[in-house]
Computed example of a mutant assay.
Amino acid sequence: MAKDIFQRVADEARPPAIWGRPGCGPPDYAVYVLLDDLVESGAWLDLELKRPFLALWVNDQDFDNPDLDDPIVALGQSDLRKFAAMDPVVDLESLRGMHVKLVYDDEV
C-alpha cells in the first residue's frame, strides 16, 4: 500500500500526528496544520523522513518570498524553522534543490 509523504510523516512522528484532520480549513491548509501539530507536540521524526518533508517547504517557489500578511503562511514559516531546530536538527539551506519522493511504499 502506498502512502504520500504527509501521511507517512503523520504516522511515523512520535507522538503521531493527524494528516487531513476534518475542519482544518481549506485543503491547502492541511500541510500547515500538520506542521503546527508536529511543533506543538514536540514530535520527533526520523532524519530520513524529516529532511524530505522540510525540503518540500524550502523548495517551494514562495519560500523565499512568503505572503506574511496571510496568518497561516506566517505561522507556517515560523513552525518550519521551529521544527527544523527540533531534534534531529536540520539545516534548511542544505535542502535547497533536494528531490523529494512524494509517495512511499509502506510494505516492509
Rank of each mutant, 00 (worst) to 15 (best):
D28A: 10
L68R: 12
L75W: 05
M98N: 11
G42F: 07
D69Y: 10
D67W: 10
D69K: 10
Q61I: 03
D79R: 01
P71I: 02
L38P: 01
C24S: 09
L49V: 08
A55M: 06
V100D: 11
M1Y: 14
G42E: 03
E12S: 15
Q61N: 10
L102T: 14
E93T: 09
S94A: 12
R96L: 05
Q61V: 12
R21K: 15
E107L: 07
F63W: 05
A43W: 00
N65I: 09
Q61A: 05
D37T: 13
H99S: 02
D11E: 15
E12A: 15
L92M: 07
P22S: 11
L75E: 00
Y32L: 14
G76A: 15
L35Y: 04
L35N: 00
P88L: 09
W44K: 09
D70C: 04
D70P: 05
A55R: 00
W19I: 05
I72N: 02
G25N: 12
L47T: 07
G76E: 01
V89P: 04
A30I: 07
A74I: 06
L45C: 05
L95V: 04
A85W: 14
D69F: 08
L49P: 03
I5K: 15
V33S: 02
D67Q: 07
D11H: 10
D79V: 06
D105T: 13
V108M: 10
P88E: 15
Y29K: 04
A43T: 03
E48D: 13
P52K: 02
L92E: 04
A55H: 03
P22K: 11
D37E: 14
L75M: 15
Y104F: 13
F6M: 12
R21L: 08
D67P: 06
A2V: 13
M1L: 15
L38I: 09
S41R: 08
Q61Y: 05
R8C: 03
D28P: 03
D91Q: 12
R8P: 02
L75N: 06
A43H: 04
G76I: 11
V100K: 01
H99T: 11
L54C: 13
V103L: 14
P66F: 05
L95Q: 00
Y32M: 12
P22D: 15
K101L: 11
F83A: 04
P16T: 13
I18D: 09
M86C: 12
A30C: 13
E93I: 08
D60V: 06
V31D: 00
V31Y: 07
Q61R: 00
D60I: 02
A30M: 08
S94Q: 10
F6Q: 08
R51Q: 02
A2C: 13
Y29I: 06
W44Q: 06
F53R: 01
Y29P: 00
L102W: 10
D64G: 07
V33L: 03
Q77D: 02
D28M: 11
A55P: 02
R81G: 09
I72G: 01
D105L: 11
F63R: 04
F63E: 01
V90T: 06
G20K: 06
R96E: 09
P22A: 14
